[in-house]
Design a protein around this nucleic acid. Structure first.
Lengths: 225, 225
DNA sequence: GCGTATAAGCTGTCTAACAGATTTTCGGGA
DNA sequence: TCCCGAAAATCTGTTAGACAGCTTATACGC
């Protein structure tokens, strides 16, 4: 079989550092030499791990300055949920993962000013609904729909609508959507959505896709802990 | 800005080698030392490039033996069509790319024996239809549908059906699906589908996803060169 | 207090080397 | 001739040390 390489440990170790020390986006990682000493390996091994982390969009190396955290969500996604092995849980989330992440990515690339305004408006509606502690499921869906719309590709809306019509049916039968949530959960949900919208606004396609994946991942976890 | 690193050249050079020399899946690449000499860089640089290629699923390193080609399609996909920048063409293909690639991936992971037989049967029907030079659009769709079914997740079927109902509508209006194709195109289409099915049979999730992406990419090109 | 020059730190890259795994080669025996 | 096993060649995984060039921090002079 494929033996474990040292750089695998280094990769996992660096992810662990970012998570445990709660390094935010833009924060600097320890230097390659420091990481090498900490893990008890050579600098070459740390470099290989960093190359893979950069390739995965988690870190970014700046020559002469250091390596920096590029996106928080992806670290945890990479650590707990490699894209190749989605856990078999709520089926619709598996589809939403790929469908809406791609929609966010394309929305970031192609959104017109009008579509952006449409998304921002949806965000504002969701914000108001969440902050007034109403059940904001409809506003949530509406924002997601507007993001799909911002791709400019009607095929996304077709798939989206078909899927969510079904999700609604399941949810109304099973999970209680309209249950009230503690304030910190509301704040988190708000922040997650804001990150997605901000990435689309900034035309950061990779960031938008990651933020969407992260949001859906957390959303699934909130539904089924 | 972000300067170009030598390993970028090495990465591109290795992809070029695989494409130009038409190395098949399983073929061995030149040794790290040989590649280093060819590109005029150190072995460390070649290693970084190989780590990234392996991370991208293109090559695979076997300790003591060498680096081997893991998937041909991805090389070309990586070279011509980075996942982050899908060209804005036929809208439905953008959705099919992510949706069906993920379906193929999950089908490879989870397919039961029954579902696998179902997929094989669909493949056989498509094979017969293609070889008798009939317009095999219906059989093509049926095979894709059975792959989505093999995920065991009904949500994929819901999105799939909604999408393809629409695609059919568009296609019947515009492109002539039933036009006859030259024999070499038929052989290619057959091979593409067989690769997908073979990967699912072998439970090679990454290979299945890549084969599906490759197939859709080529399919789109056949429709709109 | 502020600006600048120097120092320190960091990444990118190279060379040289060795352990351990794998493949190839080669010779001897049936 | 064919097969088997041992030795040799080859290759990856990994380490150490070194240096250029870029970036950030420090300290000094005004």
């Amino acid at each position: 079989m494929n033996q474990v390489r040292l750089s695998d440990h280094a990769y996992a170790g660096i992810v662990e550092i970012i998570n445990d020390q709660d390094l935010e986006v833009g924060a600097r990682l320890p230097s390659e030499a420091a990481l090498a000493e900490r893990f008890g390996v050579s600098r070459a091994i740390v470099r290989e791990a960093l190359v893979r982390l950069a390739s995965d969009g988690i870190t970014e190396a700046r020559r002469g300055a250091g390596s920096f955290v590029k996106s928080r969500p992806s670290q945890r996604l990479a650590a707990f949920m490699p894209a190749t092995e989605l856990p078999a849980t709520l089926g619709s989330y598996e589809v939403r993962f790929v469908l809406e992440a791609e929609a966010a990515r394309l929305a970031a690339t192609r959104r017109s000013a009008l579509e952006m305004a449409h998304v921002e408006e949806g965000m504002e509606m969701l914000r108001i609904a969440l902050l007034s502690s109403e059940p904001a499921h409809a506003e949530d869906m509406e924002l997601h729909r507007r993001i799909a719309e911002a791709t400019g590709n009607p095929a996304f809306l077709i798939a989206f609508d078909a899927l969510h019509a079904d999700v609604d049916k399941i949810m109304r039968a099973g999970v209680d959507i309209s249950r009230s949530r503690p304030p910190e959960v509301i704040a988190t949900m708000l922040r997650e959505h804001q990150q997605i919208v901000a990435a689309i606004r900034a035309q950061d396609s990779e960031g938008a896709a990651l933020a969407m994946r992260w949001h859906l991942w957390e959303g699934r976890r909130r539904l089924m802990p």
